[in-house]
Design a protein around this nucleic acid. Sequence first.
DNA 1: ATGTCAATAAATTATTGA
Length: 264
Amino acid sequence: MRICTWNINSVRLRLPLVLKLLDEYRPDVLCLQETKVVDDSFPTAEFRDRGYVHIQIHGMKSYNGVAIISRLPLEGGDVKHWCEKQDCRHVLATLPGGIEVHNLYVPAGGDVPDPAVNDKFAHKLRFLDEMRDWFPANRSKDKPMVLVGDLNIAPLEHDVWSHKQLLDVVSHTPVEVEKLTALQDSLSWVDAVRRFVPANQKLYTWWSYRAADWEASDRGRRLDHIWVTPPLAGSLTGYQVLREARGWEPKPSDHVPVMVDLAV
DNA sequence: ATGTCAATAAATTATTGA
């Protein structure tokens, strides 16, 4: 089973790129974030035509929005709300074999890494705390689960182009990393991609639009993640981070697809 | 390091969020 996650930054604008991904890499399950579209306007037909007939969407106007698009049957589709907001940052569904997929879009957190003066950063930290509490209270680490999405945090030193220069930059500050790690530890989640890429090797999934030449400067961050619970860890057989997709024409997302293969 | 995108509401240009 191949599971892919991609922050698409408008699914309607980049629909041709999404279809290219499906045609060339044939994931069984595609999880999108930042779809930026209400459910009624989601381009469902184009996915159905390609055999992706099982779709769980949770979108809103302009911002955020998540979707699970699958060739395999989905059951028990649901959404969760965090921080007393209905802002479309989470959708979940169950795959054959009882594998529960959680697709998440963690708040970006604004620019100033101080919750006292920046409400967006405070929201991000609260969101992480709520997830850290929710998963162990409602799920067991013995349940086969996959958590994917744009977590908007690059936790490891080599998940960013310069650990030192990004210590004060939202996405790599110690307080965010600590909270993401606490969430990971809460159900013994395994960082699937880092099972294949050693922690001392640079690995990025996002490059800013603001760079004059993203490829030459290569100032990336690993913000997009795939985690699995312990029962699935032994089934991981491969991964791909589609760096090339950062250059896909005509208009690439600033994030690239991340996928893993599971022998289930 | 403050550069670029995308969506929206309003009317070719500003705002907001990332």
